[in-house]
Design a binder for these strands. Structure first.
Lengths: 345, 345
DNA sequence: GTGAAAGCGCTAACAA
DNA sequence: TTGTTAGCGCTTTCAC
């Protein structure tokens, strides 16, 4: 069931069949039809391995993720996939499997095996060796998420994103705001948490508000981490007055991800606090869950970023020069978890 | 930078180099070392396309998902991936892209192109043509999730799962329980919702409790859908007494997924109801979010199911016979959202 | 323990 | 418009 069978059945040569199958211009229409018909009858299925060997193009791109089960990665992956599908490319997924994963083997054993024509790295921090190996592989490459030294990237301006959130909060009158961020141990680009944190601190300072060290919390970029951070901030299950002395409580909390913000919301409720009457909460991302619980957020569109990235590497595969991409858009979505600070504060 | 270069540099033949690289037994240890050294120096990277062509094995398996951004699929995908990585296989992802996706093209154009040695289908319903084409492709195949006619599958016993939940509720004294399920328009196997629903209705009937039609709600297997269903059940934002006449309210709600249960919880809170004092809520899945908000659930382990499925097809690729797999385990996790019905009910 | 040669299924000059 | 001839980079008999 190769191209040869079709050739013998139709009495044509392999080359003509090959051309016909790909609908190339210089083949008689009648021939194309005939070949198609026979191919269908025989249930012919082309072999991408053979085609790849012959052309040097695999018509596949690799997507490397630190872990899969994170909102951002899933969404971005979806975007990359959509664009690849449009272009008729396959997507091979390289999951580093978190800190426990055997990155090294993954790198050499798979990604570099010429199985793909290009690589999309999801918010990855590479070490020297990895960078060198990838560099050497000559693949078009791009990263989605935080900036990576020496690589093209698509993503939001994380500092600006934090600033947007701070401006919204300060515009409402807040002066005491806490920040829940922290490093995602699962392998998120280390740059992103820092950029957002710095953006927050700088914007607060610019607004004339100091941020005490104890209000910079670690939420590990997860829902559970958000609950934990919120509990530290507000105290545990409290009575009517809410946990902790109100005086030592921020009037607002900026979370570096919506998942953490959702967690902080739960902690606030458990502590008996009303949102936004007692405390305002704002996240970053644009997670669907946030929409239904009324979470104010600075939304970005990871799916669009994925599409952009895919389009960029695909263009590069086709010989286009690697141009620098503009920052991805992010915008404030005001919902119900932010409001003016309580009168007394 | 092929195998040939190494051959000329070492003065060996291509065949010996090939054997050495794969650590085959009948090669001198010194030769293996030498070849390895030179290969490293040259930065040699094998071509899986060429190896695949020669052997007929691609060392890759395809995973077909209806959509990616669903908890179950992401988790299962992670499990499949982990196992493949262990075995040194690559994973190529075929995303059908929901109802809008061009399934047909995806099928012929990609999955059948001999790029993979086996296929793992995530909770997919195939039509006749698709089944026939896949059948014809001779690939080992398995589905994760609901049963699919004529295909091996791994997954929980959905009827039993519903029964476990009902037993828990009835054991607590509930007699009026509602069900939130419905079809996931995004392409979940149609069988699963039905099996769970039937399991629920049957178990309730067996316990001697009728289930009024209006308490069988559609939550579309999503968080937002859960909120909507819960709102129908409990009414909108209510005063102290909660929405709707207490008499016309179920004392418990079984949700066919944790995501929907989370939504129902939000709706209950909005309606001013206390959980589990006014109403009990139980989900199905074992979603992480549920753990941190204290959701009682019947937990399954999609990641383990993914691993099992991967192991099964890999074995089949290696010539093992396709044995039937036992149902995946699921167990009740009692947390804080279920309790006895309110005294008056 | 190693080498020579054939070929996996396709594409790509170059001719005709 | 079609056919011929070489490979793409590897694996694999079969000899030695």
């Amino acid at each position: 069931m190769g191209i040869q069978e079709i050739a013998t059945v139709t009495g044509l040569s392999k080359s003509t069949v090959s051309r016909a199958l790909r609908g190339m211009s210089n083949v008689a229409d009648t021939t194309i039809d005939e070949v198609q018909r026979v191919a269908d009858e025989l249930g012919y299925v082309p072999s991408s391995a053979a085609a790849g060997l012959a052309t040097g193009r695999q018509r596949a791109v690799g997507v490397v993720v630190p872990v899969i089960d994170r909102w951002f990665y899933v969404k971005a992956l979806g975007g990359v996939d959509a664009e690849l599908r449009r272009a008729g490319y396959d997507l091979v997924l390289y999951n580093l499997g978190g800190p426990g994963g055997d990155r090294d083997r993954a790198f050499r054993r798979s990604m570099l095996r010429h199985r793909v024509d290009a690589l999309v790295l999801l918010s990855l921090v590479l070490d020297e060796t990895e960078r060198a190996e990838l560099e050497l592989s000559q693949h078009p490459m791009i990263v989605i998420g935080g900036p990576a030294p020496g690589l093209r990237n698509v993503g939001v301006d994380d500092g600006a994103v934090a600033r947007i959130a701070v401006d919204h909060l300060c515009g409402l009158g807040h002066r005491s705001v806490a920040y829940v961020g922290g490093q995602d141990e699962a392998g998120m680009n280390v740059a992103v948490p820092h950029l957002r944190r710095d953006g927050f601190v700088d914007a607060m300072r610019a607004a004339g508000h100091a941020v005490p060290e104890r209000w910079l919390l670690d939420g590990r970029f997860s829902f559970a981490g958000g609950v934990a951070a919120g509990t530290v901030l507000f105290g545990g299950r409290g009575g009517a007055g809410g946990g902790g002395a109100a005086a030592d409580r921020p009037t607002a909390v900026l979370c570096a991800s919506d998942e953490m913000a959702l967690g902080v919301l739960v902690a606030a409720r458990r502590a008996g606090l009303s949102v936004p009457q007692d405390v305002s909460v704002i996240g970053i991302d644009g997670h669907e869950y946030g929409a239904t619980v009324g979470l104010t957020t600075v939304a970005q569109d990871p799916e669009a970023q994925g599409r952009t990235a895919a389009r960029a590497v695909l263009a590069e595969v086709d010989g286009a020069a690697a141009s620098v991409l503009p920052a991805a858009p992010a915008h404030l979505v005001v919902r119900e978890t932010t409001g003016p600070p309580p009168p007394g504060a």
